[in-house]
Simulated assay, not measured.
Amino acid sequence: MDSLLLVVICIVIFALIFDFINGFHDTANAIATSVSTKALPPRRAIMLAASMNFLGALTFTGVAQTITSGIANPFDLENGTTVILAALIAAIIWNLVTWVFGIPSSSSHAIIGAIAGSVIASDGFNAVQYSGFISIIEGLLASPLIAFVAGYIIYTIIKIVFKNRNLAKTNKQFRRVQILTAAVQSYAHGTNDAQKSMGIITMALIVGGMHTTTDVPFWVQFSCATAMALGTSVGGWRIIKTVGGKIMKIRPVNGVAADVTGAATILGATLIHLPVSTTHVISSAIMGVGASHRVKGVNWGTAQRMIVTWVITLPVTALLGAIIFTGLQLLPFL
């Protein structure tokens, strides 16, 4: 078999593995609040998240095109297949490390940082398309802030509207509504997160001379949607525990506010073709809702630990991507 074709096949396999890991790593994003409030039993919540993730992943491709050509021009990369393979390995390693420790880090930050680092190691700093890269970073940084503020505002409005309602009856009603909001949030998650692997595979097909545009082939879209849905069905219980209970004590009304905030923020980013971290967005939405409910009720220590992980993910994965690229260069068939 031609060595270039073999490497591209390896990239496709690793990209689908990354998507699978992304699925179980980020399951908490969509269902942690509904599980913690007992709106849905865990197994049913996971199956709902998996099916809606799959549907969302089949709906859009704009974010995938941003990943394909927004960080570097795939048509100009000299060692394109090695760059992409190194980035995937780096992102997978980081995702698994943070999963083991139950830290809700960002798969988006991981893959974007790893791509940038391996591109720089291969072709230098000038190979990075800074206009596209900066836009991506701005989206990653702005979306959690937007989610925090929106969560605060939405929950404040809910408090005003339902201030004279019986608390027990209100929570029972919101528990039913939360099934719908969990489904919508799972759909939103699929529209954004699954596209990152689509973009990587499309990028690999371009640098391998097997594809001539940034349009995502349907087989790529379907494969990534399936991998993420399967990963989601496995579940990420360590991270569900962190997102669902260690940030704040979540009640159904809090969960609905957080779900609506997260879904709206993620879908908005998808519509303008920007990749965002669903982990950041949903965790920030929960913090915003918690701050509106009762500032002291938020476990800011857990929030601080999460933020530190968010901050270090980009530089750590960039360095890891560069190191792995250098190591792969020593292999004779790359």
Rank of each mutant, 00 (worst) to 15 (best):
F162R: 09
A49P: 07
G139W: 04
L319C: 08
V311T: 11
T317V: 11
V298I: 09
T317E: 01
L319W: 02
S131E: 14
G62H: 09
K172T: 15
G235A: 09
L58C: 05
I11K: 02
L230I: 04
V308D: 05
G132L: 10
A64S: 09
N299D: 15
D2V: 03
I200T: 05
N29K: 02
I84P: 10
A50Q: 04
M248N: 10
T82M: 12
D2N: 15
Q65G: 00
S233R: 08
D215K: 15
V220D: 00
I46H: 01
G139A: 11
I111L: 06
K241S: 13
E78Q: 15
A303S: 11
A188T: 09
S108N: 05
A183V: 06
Q195M: 06
M287R: 02
I111W: 04
V256D: 07
G235H: 11
S105Y: 10
I103E: 05
V289H: 09
A263P: 03
N79A: 14
A318N: 00
I136Q: 07
E138D: 12
A263L: 04
A142Q: 03
I323G: 01
G290W: 01
V8F: 05
I11V: 13
I71G: 10
S277F: 00
T170C: 12
V177I: 15
D19S: 12
D76V: 12
I272R: 09
A204Q: 03
A49W: 09
K241D: 13
R165V: 12
G236T: 04
V184Y: 03
S118T: 02
I67S: 05
I160P: 07
S143T: 12
E78A: 14
I93W: 00
M198Y: 09
L274Q: 15
V63H: 02
A183R: 05
L88T: 01
T181Y: 10
V12H: 00
I266M: 10
T265V: 15
L205A: 02
T214A: 12
T61F: 07
V184H: 03
I120Q: 05
I206M: 06
M52Q: 11
L334C: 08
L319I: 14
I250Q: 02
F101W: 14
A50R: 01
T27R: 05
S122P: 08
V35M: 11
H293Q: 13
T170Y: 04
V316Q: 01
A49H: 02
N79E: 13
I240T: 11
N73L: 07
V234A: 12
F14A: 10
G321Y: 06
